[in-house]
Design a binder for these strands. Structure first.
Lengths: 121, 121
DNA sequence: CGGTTAGATAACCGACTGGTTCTGCAGGGG
DNA sequence: CCCCTGCAGAACCAGTCGGTTATCTAACCG
């Protein structure tokens, strides 16, 4: 893919969407931001408060989340409230769910055993 | 930080387990390795074959996956087969599933609307 | 025993990350 | 009108990542 017919807006790290989502989730601060946004949209200041770090850092985190499609940004006077968009998480759930049959190790062994039973070649 | 009360086996990147799992999944090569391991355990060489990169790179990827608890390594003569352990993915699925009510944006708006209806304070 | 195969480890590299501070800018309030 | 608030962006820094090549050990094979 990436037929290169277009100007390729995202250059380096945004390879595929799933990777971007996983990478965005691989940070506790960003997951906490997402958790907070489940209670409703919030401006940067309100998001920065509980994290003991500069607002600029939160801005960066929000940009990562936005690039991953996990949040959308609004405009309300001089505030730019962030709003949760959990649709990418549906694909995350689907991905993880694809491994459901392997969650139980003994079940995986059983599966392997059955495969050998039916096709002993 | 890192209260240093214990010997802290993992230093830098292994902060919390969930972050380690998400970080491990945030790479298409590693996800492809996991996909391949669903067909059964495989030695490093077999895993390296389809990826056009050095075996050392695969070794590193496997170490990341192992640290995330997504694979276990065995010993069979001079081979060190990797075996899928999908139990961490159960937590990933649980995490994503926690956002199920927000997957549909309009449903989230409706939920917000209902909350305001029932508790107008 | 020596050679070959399978893989891990180390040293190194360029790129990206996560944080900082400082500057810039849009917009509301005295 | 000027300034103050709320945030974004740039420059910078240390640390990590993903990849390389080269070196090393472990185990089989003749």
């Amino acid at each position: 893919m990436t037929a290169a017919t277009g100007p390729d807006t995202q250059d380096a790290p945004g390879r595929d969407p799933l990777s971007a989502v996983f990478a965005a989730l691989a940070d506790p601060t960003r997951r906490a931001i997402l958790a907070r946004l489940t209670e409703g949209e919030a401006p940067v200041g309100a998001l920065a408060a509980p994290f003991a770090m500069s607002g600029a850092a939160i801005s960066k985190h929000l940009r990562v989340l936005e690039r991953a499609g996990l949040i959308t940004r609004g405009r309300e006077a001089q505030w730019r409230p962030a709003r949760l968009d959990a649709t990418p998480l549906r694909e995350v759930a689907a991905y993880a769910d694809g491994f459901r049959r392997f969650w139980d190790e003994s079940f995986a062994r059983l599966d392997d055993y059955l495969a050998r039973m039916e096709d002993p070649s």
